[in-house]
Design a protein around this nucleic acid. Structure first.
Length: 531
DNA sequence: GGAGCAGTTGGTGCA
DNA sequence: CTGCACCAACTGCTC
């Protein structure tokens, strides 16, 4: 067996060439070992079935892969997109390509952890070396948790103080150019299908073109990510004075950086972004976490860290940090919310922007999330999580679940009596309602004074403005002032129940710690924590 | 162990 | 327009 060996770099997230330590390792090792290099991405047809990914995000991924391939070609290699799932494909590839080493970036998401465990077993079986790098977040969650005596910091401030004691890993240099000798010789079957490793088309991804926005407002890819970031970085005053709560959820163009979709896919390195922010701060007065731009990056770190060690982080049941709240089913409310037909123009405008463009401002997310859950519709946050998962370009598992728990006052945030008004909140930053007019054009002739509350307009004036409520635009599905008060009482009851349950289970534990500790992992954790 | 404090971004009404 | 008390009262962390 004298066949030349292969080094694989497996792209999953981290869809970039810059600051990609696992890719650098693969390139260096391929050169050192005089091996072939194959940077691969796996397109798993199975994933299309169980993951809800809307058309806009499929396109974003497609653009990201195409750009990645382009950037790899500048290094004299390319992206090999292989079709299939890792479980079945890797054993085949290991043999077919005579693989000696595989490198990839660590991922904390539960499905990824499971997937990677299978790979590790296969790698062992086929005697393939594995190198894993932590580069999706600035701080390796495992190191933060170790520093915090074995558990994840549960508040942002705690996370900040723990992280401040850790070294911030700087971005690594781009990989070397790949020598000709590392270019794999194609076998006969590969030669026959010239495009079998090409970046998939939208058609192959099963994207319904009708669901796509006309142009991609935020095109995918590392090149665009870097362009966008450096463009923002030039605006030093903006970077230094950035305070999230003071940015507007309903400006006609985004008031924040919209780098989140790029960070989600790893087309932009969080470590590079962080370094650039610090560079912009140098010698200047600047805002501070949690509201500063630096603070926004740390929020991402925080949620990744907690999510990495919390079982069932994306659901209410079996999630030890999540308040158990008796949410109700209501399909018609949920549909109205999802499709921007609640009858509250501010809420509907945000949901329509989400569906059309794949991005909404963080505070817009707050307004609609509060409305869906504890504020108005009393629907489980998991339902909202699913809709965001489908529509958001930046839908990121840990952040999505974490923020939904925050807004529904299920975890992290507990002042459930602070409720966003679907009428008043938007008025602060857009009294004229221009944002509503853009995304809910039915109401474009409604004057500023009533556009947030069109149900208050007389039928005569509704006719005059060319939009009759209940016909051209829906009646509001709930009366906020009424349901908000009812929901407050329900939240109070749910919290009270939580506390009485906790004290009861603690009593039980005191009586019989062994019996209860064998029952549930949940109580095991608590028992050991007390000690 | 318990009191006191702080918590990315609420709304309302009044001075 | 801005600042402030009030609404009723949560949790996690600190000392």
């Amino acid at each position: 067996m004298s066949k030349k060996v292969t080094v694989i770099h497996w792209f999953r997230k981290g869809l970039r060439v810059h600051d990609n330590p696992a890719l650098v390792k693969a390139v260096d090792e391929a050169i050192n070992r005089k091996a072939y290099l194959r940077p691969i991405f796996m397109l798993d047809p199975g994933i299309i079935k169980w993951m809800t990914v809307g058309a806009n995000r499929w396109r974003f991924l497609q653009e990201t892969l195409a750009d990645l391939d382009k950037n790899l070609r500048k290094l004299n290699t390319r992206l090999y997109v292989v079709r299939g799932n890792p479980k079945e494909l890797f054993p085949q590839l290991f043999e077919k390509w005579n693989v000696e080493l595989i490198t990839f970036e660590h991922d904390i998401e539960p499905y990824a952890v499971k997937r990677d465990q299978i790979l590790l077993k296969d790698a062992e079986k086929f005697n393939v070396e594995v190198m894993i790098e932590y580069s999706h977040t600035i701080f390796n969650p495992e190191l933060v948790i170790k520093k915090n005596k074995g558990s994840a910091p549960m508040t942002y401030q705690k996370f900040l103080s723990v992280a401040s004691e850790l070294k911030v890993p700087p971005p690594v240099d781009n990989p070397n150019k790949v020598p000709k000798s590392c270019e794999p010789e194609l076998d006969d079957t590969e030669k026959k299908c010239k495009d079998c490793y090409d970046v998939p088309t939208l058609k192959e991804m099963g994207v319904n073109k009708e669901e796509l926005s006309k142009t991609s407002k935020f095109p995918g890819g590392e090149t665009e990510a870097l362009r966008r970031m450096y463009d923002k970085m030039k605006q030093t005053d903006y970077i230094c004075s950035f305070e999230k709560p003071n940015t507007s959820p309903n400006s006609l163009e985004p008031s924040t950086t919209v780098l989140s979709p790029y960070l989600k896919f790893g087309a932009l390195s969080a470590r590079l972004f962080y370094q650039e922010i610090k560079q912009a701060y140098k010698g200047r007065k600047h805002s501070q976490p949690p509201v500063s731009l630096e603070g926004q990056v740390i929020w991402r770190e925080f949620y990744y860290c907690v999510a990495s060690v919390t079982a069932n982080f994306d659901q209410m049941k079996g999630n030890r940090i999540c308040a158990q709240i008796p949410w109700a089913h209501n399909q018609s409310y949920l549909d109205a919310w999802k499709h921007g037909a609640t009858g509250y123009p501010f809420i509907d405008a945000i949901m329509r922007q989400l569906k059309q463009e794949g991005w909404i401002h963080h505070l817009g997310r707050h307004a609609v999330a509060c409305f869906l859950t504890r504020g108005d519709l009393w629907i489980n946050w998991e339902e909202g999580q699913k809709v965001f998962e489908e529509y958001l370009l930046d839908a990121d598992w840990a952040l999505n679940a974490g923020n939904w728990m925050w807004l529904s006052a299920s975890a992290f945030f507990h002042q459930y009596f602070r409720v966003y008004s679907p009428v008043a909140f938007g008025k602060k930053t857009d009294p004229q309602g221009l944002y509503i007019k853009k995304y809910v054009p039915e109401l474009k002739n409604y004057p500023a004074g009533v556009i947030y509350e069109p149900w208050k307009v007389s039928l005569e004036n509704q006719k005059k403005y060319g939009c009759i409520i209940g016909k051209d635009y829906p009646h509001r599905i709930v009366d906020h002032d009424v349901v908000m008060k009812e929901n407050l009482a329900k939240m109070k009851a749910a919290y009270a129940k939580k506390n009485s349950d906790t004290s009861q289970s603690e009593k039980r534990k005191a009586e019989s710690p062994i019996a209860s500790s064998s029952k549930k992992k949940n109580s095991v954790d608590k028992y050991f924590k007390k000690k």
